[in-house]
Design a protein around this nucleic acid. Structure first.
Length: 683
DNA sequence: GCAAGGTC
């Protein structure tokens, strides 16, 4: 009889190594190029074999849509660029035949449950399977987990399978429907897509873009007072409510000019300590790499991945801002001191009795914050690899460093009933900023003045200010938004953004993102026919259903049936619409994507008519722009008393004015409506 | 070909 053994399934090679170390499995073998470890577990021979994430995926059983038939298939057979998975598939195929027991030791989350379960289901025996549960890969936790193996976590597996199925059902069906619509409209095949994460992200960027494009800057007036001390001019900060209107601002300016002098009524100094930032999690790293070096989030992940595979940094796909408790920071810092640029700072740190990191709040059950391993790069890193490595290392070193000490000096000045302040700021000790030098603290030195002294007002100016639209999204800020609403994961967000570019929904515009006409049209279809898919609420609903499945309160098939019952009629409705479009040679689909049709279009852009405002037929964007234009005029008039025509002229040349607003103004001017006060009375 | 989720 052949010797049998326990087969321990790890999620990835790195985890397999850590488990092997914790369980003291000393023998390392390789099969098909995949490492595995042999040792003794609970008095039995055991093997620890790694997967590489999901080895199986869902595959459609038929073309067309609605499609509700799918099955699990090996990923290397289904997906392009997944051939590296073949060797992992083969090692489980080979080593499963003599296994007497299977232990799923993948990360303790729903995906880990699925990764291990699918291997057991395909190659092994579900009846002879156990699950170990640990939330970090530390020796103590792993040993405890392996000493307390649980039965297979059925509900968790069901929840995981359910997540896969729901994402697949929505994603594949809606994508296929979109492609069908565009093939009918244009006669050409485009790859289009929609999904639980990508579609709400598209909508968010559109929302912001429409806000910007329909934005009308609002004017306000303020006074600016300057004083001159020792030949230098200083602008004072007003400590009284802004006058807002032109009349009021002129009044205040006049009074201040008459008063001519200010009295220094209070001198305050204060010291502020700015604590070092926490070590990086992936979103923070992506944001900083973008801010400092202009590297996109997906490229940052790719580079971090390669640094990780070369053992230079720890696991990068983490949301944690906390370093592991048992990390030997002294050894790492000692090692980093061999790299010239870090030498001095490392030496300073090493003189301390203890290195205590300034950990952040965010945590991740599976992995700690990103840190350099102390391993010195053997080959020369590429320029960008070095930037990322350097960022991570400096951030890591800074987190043990002293706070930055900032000295503030504040003067409070009085002229009549008006209070002003003037503040200076000086860095007294740089602390962590010395090593993490990407943080700028503005310094302003003030001449020293005595309380009670009188100062001449050098100038009083009435200034015009305008409100500004919210900024355009960039890859980095959009990634941060996804994180804030909790859609996608550390590993997938950046890739999903790239998908939106690849589909042609997004285009780069400067540093920012612009949504294309195609993106807007796809969004229109989603809004009209699959409204659930465009809000993050679908994710929330998924989460609640997963939770119900995980608690055994609902079955997977029940949840899947619900999804099918929502999707099915809508998909059929799309099919009907396409049929009707073809039959009538009609405009059905044009309307569905928001394009105007005969007698129902915007006079400005030709998009689908939304509303007739003041006798002008407008699409939803120009209608919104027109409304903003009208309501902002009330405020403008109150603050600066100009007529509508002057107002339009001022708005049209303001660079914050949205493009739809400018188009509305052009239309009003050309059609001769601008001289008519939109509120009814002639100007 | 289409999702989102793991990881090389």
């Amino acid at each position: 009889m052949r010797e049998t053994y326990v087969l321990i399934i790890a999620e990835k090679p790195k985890a397999a190594l850590r488990i092997a170390q914790a369980l003291e499995f000393k023998t390392r073998h390789t099969l098909y190029g995949v490492p595995y470890w042999v040792g003794v577990y609970r008095d039995r021979k055991a093997l620890i074999v790694p997967a590489a994430g999901h080895l199986f995926t869902l595959k459609a059983e038929e073309g067309g849509y609605p499609v509700f038939k799918y099955s699990w298939a090996p990923r290397h057979e289904v997906e392009r660029n997944s051939s590296y998975l073949r060797k992992f598939f083969k090692i489980f195929q080979k080593l499963s035949s003599n296994a007497e027991l299977y232990v799923n030791a993948c990360d303790f989350d729903i995906e880990g449950s699925v990764i291990g379960y699918m291997i057991i289901k395909v190659f092994g025996d579900e009846r002879k399977a156990k699950r170990v549960k640990f939330s970090s890969l530390t020796r103590e936790e792993l040993r405890t987990a392996f000493n307390n193996p649980h039965d297979l976590d059925r509900e968790m597996i069901e929840a995981g399978l359910c997540r896969h199925e729901l994402d697949w059902l929505w994603g594949i069906n809606v994508s296929r429907a979109l492609m069908d619509i565009y093939r009918t409209l244009t006669g050409r095949r485009y790859v289009l897509s929609a999904g639980r994460v990508q579609s709400p992200t598209l909508m968010e960027v559109i929302k912001r873009q429409v806000e910007r494009d329909t934005f009308v800057p609002v004017v306000s007036f303020d006074v600016e007072v300057r004083i001159e001390i020792e030949g230098k001019m200083f602008r004072l900060t007003n400590r009284f409510p802004s006058p807002v209107s032109k009349v009021r601002a002129l009044e205040i300016a006049k009074k201040l000019r008459e008063l001519r002098r200010l009295k220094l009524v209070k001198v305050e100094t204060s010291r502020r300590a700015v604590a070092p930032p926490p070590p990086f999690n992936l979103p923070d790293l992506q944001l900083e790499a973008s801010r400092i070096a202009g590297i996109s989030p997906s490229e940052t992940l790719r580079i971090a991945e390669s640094l990780y595979l070369n053992s230079l940094i720890s696991y990068p796909r983490t949301n944690s801002q906390r370093l592991p408790k048992d990390l030997n920071n002294k050894a790492i810092v000692t090692s980093l001191s061999k790299i010239n640029v870090y030498k001095d700072h490392c030496m300073r740190l090493l003189r301390r009795p203890k290195l205590i990191p300034h950990n952040g709040r965010k945590d991740d059950p599976a992995h700690p914050a990103i840190y350099p391993t102390g391993y010195i790069p053997r080959k020369k890193l590429s320029k960008k690899e070095w930037i990322i490595y350097d960022l991570i290392t400096r951030r890591y070193l800074s987190t043990f460093s002293d706070p930055a000490e900032i000295l503030n000096l504040k003067y409070t000045l009085l002229a009549g009933e008006y209070t002003f302040s003037l503040t200076g700021q000086k860095i007294e000790s740089k602390g962590w900023i010395d090593i993490y030098r990407y943080v700028q603290i503005k310094e302003q030195e003030l001449p020293s003045l005595q309380e009670g002294s009188a100062l001449d007002i050098a100038s009083v100016k009435v200034v015009k200010k305008y409100t500004r639209p919210p900024p355009r999204y960039t890859r980095a800020t959009l990634l941060k938004w996804m994180e804030s609403v909790n859609i996608g994961t550390e590993a997938t967000r950046a890739d999903i953004l790239e998908v939106l570019f690849k589909r042609g929904y997004f285009r780069p515009l400067g540093n920012g993102i612009e949504v294309s006409t195609l993106g807007m049209e796809v969004a229109a279809i989603l809004e009209n026919y699959f409204s659930e898919l465009i809000s993050i609420e679908l994710t929330r609903a998924f989460e609640m259903k997963m939770e119900a499945v995980r608690l055994g309160k609902k079955s997977r098939s029940e949840v899947v049936r619900e999804a099918v019952s929502i999707l099915s009629p809508r998909l059929l409705r799309i099919k009907d619409m396409i049929k009707e479009h073809k039959l009538t040679g009609g405009k059905v689909l044009e309307q569905a994507v928001g394009r105007g049709i005969n007698g129902k279009s915007c006079v400005i852009c030709g998009r689908l008519l939304h509303r007739v405002v003041d006798g002008i037929p407008l699409c939803k964007y120009h209608a919104k722009a027109y409304e903003s234009l009208k309501s902002a005029y009330f405020i403008w008039k109150e603050r600066s008393d100009i007529d509508f025509n002057e107002y339009l002229k001022a708005i049209v040349k303001n660079k914050s004015t949205g493009k739809y607003v400018k188009e509305v103004i052009d239309y009003l001017m050309e059609s001769g409506r601008s001289s008519t006060n939109v509120h009814g009375s002639k100007t």
